[in-house]
Design a protein around this nucleic acid. Structure first.
Lengths: 126, 126
DNA sequence: ATAATTGCAAACAGTTTGCCCCTAT
DNA sequence: ATAGGGGCAAACTGTTTGCAATTAT
């Protein structure tokens, strides 16, 4: 991943312009305007490689294609099970706030969640 | 969804026994021990219906089949990739705290995370 | 009789892969 | 000439759906 091909550069730049979380196909259609011969497979291949190298991140949603996110740090997402939209949540939310229907969650219905961190505990981390 | 078939009951009961997040296929194999003629399609159909009715929830993760979760509320976990231990996280942790290596996370190494909420956005929720 | 649900298999959607060609070192 | 992609289409995987048969009310 040292020298980016025209295709990889374009896929990445197109994603970086987004403030939302587009699908591979969204990006494919956009990139095709600049590089009409690009194939969907190439878009997938590059998104995969970029995600593996930590340049971007990939978000999965039930009943909807995966989405890609230029923001790679740890940050919480809200995923609408109605329309599949992915929204970023404020960093400082807490579980009691989510449960309590206050703040950001006022008027939003929460059906479920996953909140898991992977790492090494004190014993294993030494 | 008023009267549960034997199949639906068994799928739900099997999921409820789990403390982790099994895939449809995991559940299929378990349920088949009690009801050998059950089909994978039926397991999928029932999981889908149960999730639509808010009885259980469905979780997607990149590069892996969807998982199902009997819990309705938020339940943050820390999973040690060294020894597999699962620890409960305090409800009031925030992302800045996780990033900042303070509080609960002092001295613990975080490799990855999933923090996603599922629900209806304001547009879909009305 | 009606409505819901099953097992099976085929269909489907999103994603990945194999192949061969093309470009850049 | 070697390595790394690209384009295309076929393959693969997880999930859904159509259908005829079955079950419960």
């Amino acid at each position: 991943m040292k020298n980016f091909s025209r295709q990889r550069t374009l896929v990445l730049e197109t994603l970086l312009k987004h403030r939302d979380h587009p699908t591979a196909d969204d990006l494919y259609r956009e990139v095709k305007e600049d590089l009409p011969q690009i194939s969907l497979g190439t878009v997938y291949r590059n998104l995969k490689k970029l995600a593996e190298n930590g340049v971007i991140s990939r978000i999965s949603v039930p009943d909807s294609p995966d989405r890609y996110d230029p923001h790679t740090g740890m940050h919480p997402h809200f995923i609408c099970t109605g329309c599949g939209t992915v929204e970023d949540l404020p960093d400082d939310i807490t579980v009691p706030e989510i449960r309590g229907d206050s703040g950001w969650f006022k008027g939003r219905e929460i059906h479920g969640s996953v909140f898991q961190l992977y790492g090494l505990c004190r014993k294993c981390g030494k």
